[in-house]
Design a protein around this nucleic acid. Structure first.
Lengths: 348, 348
DNA sequence: ATGAAAGCGCTAACAC
DNA sequence: GTGTTAGCGCTTTCAT
């Protein structure tokens, strides 16, 4: 550790285009031409300017430029997620960032943390920073306030959950179908009492998954299982205690279908703690790290968050490039990965 | 899906402070006063302005304001991580975001992806957007170019890896000590042939961990084990194949010490595939989801990324608030969590 | 209590 | 090939 003080104020204030122009002995427009790689600058002049840029460590102020530039772009976009800390969201984040970076665009990532008011504040924060576009996973149920943003020229792409009260592009998983397949898979192993650990019912996605679950039961003639719904589970610990409760009930389920990664984790913990992991089947929504290593391996419906994020970013940039076609909804397929936990048969 | 076209151009262009002033029948300075909650506006005027703001859905352009404001702040910061997709990085990200949001600051998160050149480009991208400060996990080995940013008034906090060639705040784990403890733990179980699956040696952190490993061996009088170093492993798949190779060697290790989360995951996969998970001990650096559920549970040195991120953000804001003390290095303790895999004894 | 004018760093438009 | 002027949306300064 050093005793040297960090200077309170910048030693050298940041250079502006005028400083560069002065040092190079040219007008500011010439500097502007050089830093934007425009034509009509003689090679020697260009070189002098470049040297001045180096000397002063000049970095053009993108925001100042945007103010006057005709495209008005900030080369910035806003990404709203449940939480940057959630593995699904983080994979989306990475995919969006990759494509944005290739387009010289920086990404503001923000976590709504399941709070609609906070979500709204985050969108406002993005708007005040004049992001070029928005990629959002909404937790709130009224998205109509986003329409104003859209009308003012900010394209929006919805990810994971469909737009409500706005017309906009969306990139989604076929939740109904995936849940149907997952449930059907458990039924085919012979299960008759299957519990669904569902997410917050205010989320459209959660309702679709529950619907897929129900329809699969209905198709197999198992309507009695309706009582096995446990909705509004949104964390690993809630899932953990729910599974404990279910297993102590008079007619414990022989199989579980969990609605998302955190819920699956909590359920797995509970099953293992109860020593039931080889007796109670489980299929989870979302793939999990180490799911392949557990005994039994965890059978999942794997979404493809990287692909979802990439497609969302592509759509956003297409809009920014002038695509004015009707709003598009892209369904990204998910797939059942069988690893053991979903292939456990019910006792007798 | 709808047939309605999205408008090619904004239907209503975004309102400016002048539009609001015109609608409210006041001067722009009055609007400025209202949106910034300044004094000297009569309640009725304030109310008229507020109404105009609502009507026009006016959102002040933060960047434009910053250009003229005396503090010059963009209320934005840059966060450079290995990858937003890595669980450790994501936890840091979340912690930083939480504190930044409370300070009305938005976070640019970016992934260096182990590429020093890319990293440099990302820093430049941050600078051109005039972030107020930088929180960085550097992969490159020469950080001196960051000094220029610092001198121009952008505070920098290093996270996870110390600054090289710059004086700056840092928030780190005591890697040497943690690695020493982990290795000692294995030695105490009776292991004499312990392999360290180390990270890229260009990373200071990796060298410290290796050093801790070596010193623990030395302290126990086990110098012969030096051959068991395998460095420069940075992904799960590399770790996977390395473990396979080690186990086929003439003197296979009876215990493993893995240097970070991805490496631990790859190693665990390999051990399980080889059926050795109950015979070969393993201690991993970084905690893992489901590490508690695996059989055996995975013993780890758990860092505290949330705390690391929070402290880093606090330090950054302290600097922005005018703290000019000498650069500070905060060491965040990590702890050994025993779950079984690290308590396996060697055969015989 | 209010507003007019200047200017932040840059680009657009148009000189020369 | 180069420079000058105006102006983007806001805050500052200073007048009223």
């Amino acid at each position: 550790m050093s005793d040297q003080e960090l200077s309170p104020k910048p030693t050298k204030p940041r250079a502006t285009i005028r400083d560069v122009a002065a040092l190079a002995g040219v007008g500011i427009k010439t500097v502007s031409r050089v830093i934007n790689n425009e034509a009509n600058v003689s090679p020697p002049t260009r070189e002098r300017v470049r040297r001045a840029v180096m000397t002063l460590n000049f970095q053009p102020h993108l925001g100042a430029g945007a103010l006057r530039r005709s495209d008005r772009k900030s080369y910035t976009l806003g990404l709203l997620l449940d939480s940057v800390d959630n593995p699904f969201s983080a994979a989306v984040n990475r995919a969006v960032e990759k494509i944005a970076t290739a387009r010289n665009t920086a990404v503001f990532a923000a976590s709504s943390e399941d709070d609609p008011e906070h979500e709204r504040a985050l969108v406002a924060a993005f708007t005040r920073r004049r992001v070029d576009g928005l990629i959002v996973t909404m937790i709130g149920t009224d998205h109509s306030y986003l329409q104003a943003e859209q009308e003012q020229g900010t394209p929006i792409v919805f990810v994971d959950r469909p737009p409500l009260g706005v017309l906009a592009d969306a990139v989604l998983t076929d939740n109904f179908n995936a849940a149907f397949v997952a449930t059907q898979h458990l039924i085919r192993q012979g299960h008759r009492t299957i519990a669904h650990l569902g997410d917050e019912l205010s989320i459209a996605t959660a309702r679709e998954r529950r619907h897929g679950f129900r329809e699969a039961l209905k198709a197999a003639g198992l309507p009695g299982s309706e009582s096995q719904h446990t909705d509004n589970i949104r964390s690993a610990s809630e899932a953990f205690s729910t599974v404990h409760r279910l297993m102590r009930s008079s007619a414990p389920p022989t199989a579980l279908f969990t609605s998302q990664n955190l819920v699956t984790i909590g359920a797995i913990r509970a099953l293992h703690q109860l020593g039931l992991q080889q007796r109670v089947a489980i299929v989870g929504f979302d793939d999990l790290v180490l799911a392949d290593v557990l005994k039994p391996g965890i059978t999942v419906i794997a979404q493809d968050p990287a692909r979802i994020g990439a497609i969302a970013a592509e759509r956003l940039f297409a809009r920014l490039d002038g695509d004015t076609a009707a709003p598009q909804t892209v369904i990204v397929p998910s797939r059942l990965i069988t690893r053991g936990s979903g292939e456990i048969s019910p006792p007798e």
